[in-house]
Amino acid sequence: MHELIRAYLLATLVTHSSNGLNANHIPLHLSQSPAPYGALQGPYSPSESIVWRNFRWH
């Protein structure tokens, strides 16, 4: 799975808002820590991004 993520660093984040489904492409970096699975890191801040403002936390 890590090889696949490294080869295709552009992810599609699908969220649901009052306007329906939204699909946004975001670049991600796979960090090796925490072991053993690592973590996906992206450049977006919840307070600055329209992606996160439309996201419904359930």
Rank of each mutant, 00 (worst) to 15 (best):
1 M>P: 05
1 M>K: 13
1 M>Q: 09
1 M>C: 07
2 H>M: 06
2 H>Q: 09
3 E>G: 12
3 E>W: 06
3 E>H: 11
5 I>K: 00
6 R>H: 08
6 R>V: 08
6 R>L: 05
6 R>I: 15
7 A>E: 08
7 A>W: 01
7 A>C: 03
7 A>M: 04
9 L>P: 04
9 L>T: 07
9 L>K: 15
10 L>N: 11
10 L>W: 03
10 L>D: 02
11 A>N: 14
11 A>C: 13
12 T>Q: 08
12 T>P: 00
12 T>H: 09
12 T>A: 11
12 T>I: 10
13 L>N: 02
13 L>S: 02
13 L>H: 10
13 L>R: 07
14 V>T: 09
14 V>E: 09
14 V>N: 02
14 V>H: 03
16 H>E: 10
16 H>W: 05
16 H>R: 12
17 S>E: 04
17 S>T: 13
17 S>R: 06
17 S>A: 15
17 S>L: 10
17 S>C: 10
17 S>G: 11
18 S>V: 07
18 S>F: 03
19 N>K: 07
19 N>I: 14
19 N>A: 08
20 G>N: 09
20 G>V: 11
20 G>I: 08
20 G>H: 07
21 L>Q: 11
21 L>S: 04
21 L>D: 10
23 A>R: 05
25 H>P: 02
25 H>S: 15
25 H>M: 07
26 I>A: 00
26 I>S: 01
27 P>V: 03
28 L>G: 00
28 L>E: 01
29 H>N: 05
29 H>V: 06
29 H>L: 08
29 H>R: 08
30 L>Y: 00
30 L>I: 05
30 L>F: 02
30 L>Q: 00
31 S>P: 15
31 S>V: 06
31 S>Y: 10
31 S>E: 15
32 Q>F: 06
32 Q>K: 08
34 P>F: 09
34 P>Y: 14
35 A>H: 05
35 A>W: 14
36 P>S: 08
36 P>D: 05
36 P>N: 01
36 P>L: 03
36 P>R: 01
36 P>Y: 04
37 Y>A: 15
37 Y>D: 07
37 Y>V: 06
38 G>Q: 00
39 A>T: 06
39 A>Q: 08
39 A>W: 04
39 A>S: 13
40 L>G: 04
40 L>W: 11
40 L>R: 02
42 G>P: 00
42 G>C: 11
42 G>V: 00
42 G>D: 01
43 P>Y: 02
43 P>K: 01
43 P>H: 02
44 Y>S: 05
44 Y>K: 01
44 Y>W: 02
45 S>E: 12
45 S>V: 13
45 S>A: 09
45 S>R: 06
45 S>Q: 13
46 P>H: 12
47 S>Y: 05
47 S>M: 11
48 E>H: 07
48 E>D: 14
49 S>T: 06
49 S>R: 00
50 I>H: 05
50 I>T: 07
50 I>V: 12
51 V>S: 03
52 W>M: 06
52 W>K: 01
52 W>A: 02
52 W>Y: 05
52 W>G: 01
53 R>V: 12
53 R>K: 04
53 R>S: 10
54 N>T: 13
54 N>P: 11
54 N>D: 13
54 N>L: 10
54 N>F: 15
54 N>M: 04
55 F>H: 05
55 F>Q: 06
55 F>G: 00
55 F>Y: 08
55 F>C: 13
56 R>G: 12
57 W>T: 05
57 W>M: 06
57 W>F: 02
58 H>E: 10
58 H>V: 10
58 H>L: 12
58 H>Y: 04
